[in-house]
């Protein structure tokens, strides 16, 4: 239950078999959007605390582990605490409770959706959702190709960045942003053009 989150480029997914894991990415994203709208509309500290309680119960049913959840939430908990302190001083406790509870509920709910949905399933849903864009000339295949190319390019560009940093260090320029960024950007553009030529030569993306 408290399995460590698969961090790194695999995404922030926590494996499991709860009803939230089985639910499709579409309904979960829609539920999140509804919560976002409700948090903006719902007024008053009581409503905000009730929403937060409901979200906490929902999060508990996802069984993603308290440690994982807490680690994901830590930055927003710190921000919410600072914000609450400032608002107590400026506008009173009611406003402080409302804005900080709203902030934590939205981020907690989104953390749960991300932790119960593998990134590749979410991206498949994005590609499916992009189908209506065909009318403006953007086919779902193109969206899928762009996502795949992005995922393939990140390790390659990361390696380029490391090489460029080593080269800058060898010249004693490791503190110079220019010696780092100019070659990194030029090589990224060069790679993009090679990839584009290779795809066109194979008749892809026509």
């Amino acid at each position: 239950m408290s399995a460590p989150a698969a961090a790194g480029l695999l995404g922030l997914y926590v494996p499991g078999d709860t009803w939230l894991h089985r639910a499709g990415p579409g309904p979960k994203a829609a539920g999140l959007a509804l919560l976002g709208a409700w948090v903006v509309v719902g007024r008053g500290p009581v409503a905000a605390l009730a929403t937060l309680g409901a979200v906490v119960v929902l999060a508990a049913t996802a069984r993603i582990g308290w440690r994982t959840t807490a680690r994901g939430l830590l930055p927003v908990l710190v921000a919410a605490a600072l914000l609450a302190a400032y608002q107590v001083w400026q506008r009173g406790a009611a406003v402080a409770v409302e804005v900080s509870a709203d902030l934590v509920s939205a981020v907690l709910a989104a953390t749960v959706v991300t932790a119960t949905t593998p990134a590749d399933r979410m991206l498949d849903a994005v590609v499916r959702a992009a189908r209506p864009l065909r009318r403006v000339g953007l086919s779902p295949e193109t969206v899928g190709l762009a996502v795949a190319l992005l995922l393939r390019s990140v390790p390659a560009l990361a390696r380029t960045a490391t090489e460029v940093r080593d080269a800058a260090r060898a010249r004693g320029l490791e503190r110079s942003p220019r010696a780092l960024l100019v070659p990194a950007a030029v090589r990224a553009v060069g790679r993009a053009r090679l990839v584009g030529d290779a795809l066109a030569a194979r008749g892809l993306g026509d």
Binding site: T142, L145, A146, V147, L149, L150, S153, V154, A156, L157, A158, A161, A184, A185, A188, V189, R191, A192, R193, V195, G196, D197, L199, A200, L204, G205, D206
Partner: peptide, 17 residues
């Protein structure tokens, strides 16, 4: 057009890096 896709995807990856 596919060259545009390559440029767009590569710059999104550059943003990640």
């Amino acid at each position: 057009p596919v060259a545009d896709v390559a440029l767009v995807a590569t710059f999104a990856a550059f943003l990640v890096v």
